[in-house]
Structure formats: C-alpha cells, structure tokens
Nucleic acid binder design. Structure first.
Lengths: 152, 152
DNA sequence: CTATGTGCAAACCATTTGCGAACCC
DNA sequence: GGGTTCGCAAATGGTTTGCACATAG
C-alpha cells in the first residue's frame, strides 16, 4: 500500500500539516477502501494503532479531509455520517442502493451518461466536483419476505 | 388547491387516521411544493394555523409520511433533514446541485436515462422506489468569486 | 519558536421518547 | 369506549467546541 504516500503528499501540497493522527486516519481509510466507515469505526480502529487518539480529533480530521476533497461523506437514511476515500479514477465512481427494509447498502457501477457533467455545466453553469446517486427500495431478500407475508 | 384532498384520501386508503394536525402538515407541504422545509419550518408555519401544535407531533407525522412514501426526506450537507412532497409524476422528478461554497441548492431536471430503473433491477434484483442525485460543486456566482480572488 | 493540532470533558442541538390527557372512528 | 395520537418536557446521541498542553515545521 504505497498509495498512502500519495495521500500524504496531497496534504503537503495543500499546506496541511501531516501529523501522526492524520497519517493514522488516512491509513485506516486506505486499508478499508470500499467500506463505509463511521467516525466511531475509525476511532476504534485508530485506538488499536495509537491508544491515545481522541474522538474529537477523528471528527476534526474527517471534516478537514472532506473539505479538501480527499474523502467523501455520505448520509444514508437517518444514520450518522459514513466516510470513504474519494474516487480518484472515473471508473471507480459508484452509487448506492439502500434497502428501505433491512438497511443493506449495495454498491453499483455508475449508470450516468458520461456527458452529464457537461450537460449540468451547459444548462446551469454549475461545476460538478462530485456526485452521488442514492436509490431507495427493496433488496432481493426483502422482496421475498414481503411476498411470503402476503401468502401466509 | 384541491390536491390536498387526494393526499388525505391517500392516508385513508392506507388506514392511517386523518387528524387535524396531519391535515395541517399536509396542507403546509402542499402549499410549499418545490421548497425544502425543515421540521422546524413546518412547526413554525403550523403554529400560525393552530398554536397548540407540538414539535414532536411534527416529527412523528413527518416520519409517518416518509415511511408511507408521501413525502421525501433529504439530507443536504451536514444540515438537518428537509422534506417535500414526493413526486407523483415521472416528469416532476428532479435532482439537486449543492454549492460547496455558499450552500445554495439548485433544482435541475432528471438527467437519468429512463431505463435506469430496469437496469438496476436486471443487474441487482433491486426494486427502485425512489432515487435522488446529489451533485456537489461550485455555482456560477461562487466560481466568479474564486476567480476574482486569484486575480487580486 | 510559534502557529497549529490534540485530548478531554462539557456543550450543542436536531430528533426521539415516556407519559398522562385529548381525540378520532 | 378503546385504542391511537397529541403536547410537553426530559432524554438521547452523534457531533462540535473551549481550553490547556503537545507537536510539526
């Protein structure tokens, strides 16, 4: 995992101090790509590496990384915030299907037409930096549960 | 505004009691289509109609209406929840551009290909009930601000 | 050396909940 | 009339903040 170095470089390039705690948090995010971690998850994982790390530092760091675009923050349902490294490559972009019944989150590929960023700029003069599609509905398993209920 | 009647009918059809408070809240949502109201906004507006209405009733009612699909709940940024009537007609579906600098929310038409619900079902056996696209970036005005900063 | 970051504990605040009274059907 | 809903006030819990100390550069 040498990608952590490029993440640290990105901080330096933005004139953000690279502290031990920030390095730890970036490492955790980098080792859990594709996962959606809460601030508490990251705090717990961080404790294993450096027991003295504080929860407020985790929050402050996550807010900082979000503001400079290194990580993405999601709010699924009424749950608390979840974080993951921002997608660097266009083909890494994915979206989320959220089951209204069991809360499961399924990641799916990007369904949006490639030109949609341009379309948004042409029509609204709005520069799209990030986008995320949230689809709510019923997952395969919960559909079956409901059809069983009806027949019983 | 006779649409309020069809909303009330929808409640009755779902065997949900139609109380004075629920009628008031539906009315407020119906009179503010296209707006994004917070629970507090609705509470304040409701007070003007019936001063005795309680904030917890507003929350309980909004949760109820959300669960049965009559209203949509949004979480923009770190802000608290915002609500609006669900789109009844396909062509009412819209998405949101959120400016990272000033927080302004711009509504735009649905850019997604019409067949995308089917695509999601075919590939993931997931039934799409609702979907919303959130685009973060810079609005026209804030782009100008940034370019002025650079030149000064 | 100095501005910035950190840990702790307390504060914050939108949202939820418990309970007795009020209300809809 | 009986179960649901309401209003109030108190509790909840994720997130933020104030402050004294530690640390990066």
């Amino acid at each position: 995992m040498s990608e952590i170095i490029s993440l640290v470089n990105e901080l330096e390039r933005k004139n953000i101090k690279v502290t031990q705690q920030r390095r730890i948090i970036l490492g955790i995010l980098n080792n859990n790509k594709g996962e959606h971690l809460s601030a508490r998850d990251i705090y717990t994982l961080g404790k294993d590496i450096d027991d003295s790390i504080g929860l407020s530092t985790v929050y402050r760091t996550l807010n900082l990384l979000r503001d400079v675009g290194i990580i993405a923050e999601y709010h699924f349902d009424k749950e608390f915030a979840k974080y993951e490294l921002s997608c660097q490559k266009e083909q890494d972009i994915h979206h989320h299907l959220i089951c209204k019944n069991c809360g499961k989150i399924i990641e799916v590929e990007n369904y949006l037409p490639g030109h949609f960023k341009d379309e948004i700029y042409d029509k609204n003069q709005f520069i799209c930096q990030e986008f995320s599609l949230k689809v709510s509905g019923l997952c395969k398993e919960c559909q079956q549960l409901f059809s069983e209920e009806k027949t019983s």
